[in-house]
């Protein structure tokens, strides 16, 4: 069983006029297949920064990151894009669905990008929208959906290409308690189906569902 992503001594500094901000300081982390990790901690402690590094959308200023054994720093931009497209699913606090596309098209989008045939794409999209219980809302635009519904579409989109790793940054941040719980339930199912999850959250309900909790403080993991 190979590790999906492994960060060694990750440090991320942001150069600022008043001196660099160290968002992440010497963090080592390993995410294995099927893991379910919740990252918690006070605002500004570096949770999102860590998630962005794991998701290959940002690069550490120090330390190294291996994704399925490959050193991410040595990859080209398009190789990193390819990893994100095929191996990682992203769920954002603000959903970031394409507003001009229907829920169905949003879920089809990443599949089309890796060249899945239309018939297979339709079957997979149907399956995913059934999975998140929105099959009857497929033709609706994001603006016609509630926050919880949008987040479920976003989760379906993140799972579209059967990623090994699902990364979520405050996925319940914009949702009320009940809706947040629906999302938490959905994550449980995703986890049960074998997808590794790393979720950054302030939501205790969601955090307690994880198998492993990382507490962060001022750029470091203080408790695991």
């Amino acid at each position: 069983m190979t590790t999906i992503v492994e960060g060694r001594h990750l440090t991320r500094e942001f150069p600022m006029p008043a001196g660099p901000v160290v968002a992440l300081r010497d963090v080592s982390i390993e995410i294995n297949p099927g893991a379910y990790v919740a990252v918690t901690g006070p605002s500004g402690c570096g949770k999102s920064t860590l998630l962005h590094l794991l998701g290959c959308v940002d690069a550490p200023t120090d330390g190294s990151l291996l994704f399925e054994g490959r050193d991410v720093a040595r990859l080209t931009d398009s190789e990193r894009s390819r990893i994100r497209l095929t191996r990682i699913g992203f769920v954002f606090q603000r959903f970031f669905l394409m507003p001009m596309l229907s829920a169905w098209e949003n879920v089809e989008l990443p599949q089309a990008e890796i060249g899945i045939r239309p018939a297979d794409r339709r079957a997979r999209t149907r399956e995913l929208l059934e999975y998140v219980d929105l099959i009857d809302r497929g033709h609706h635009r994001p603006s016609q959906l509630s926050g919880g519904e949008m987040q479920r579409v976003a989760i379906a989109r993140a799972l579209a290409n059967r990623p090994a790793l699902l990364l979520a940054d405050e996925p319940t941040g914009e949702l009320d308690e009940d809706t947040g719980e629906q999302v938490a339930d959905l994550f449980d199912r995703v986890h049960a189906d074998g997808t590794a999850i790393v979720v950054v959250t302030h939501n205790p309900v969601l955090a307690t569902r994880a198998e492993r909790r990382l507490m962060m403080k001022r750029g470091t993991v203080v408790h695991s």
Binding site: G55, R82, R84, T86, F90, M98, P110
Partner: peptide, 10 residues
């Protein structure tokens, strides 16, 4: 940015 995070190349 979301499209890029989802893996759409430049």
């Amino acid at each position: 940015a979301a499209l890029r995070a989802l893996g759409f190349p430049r």
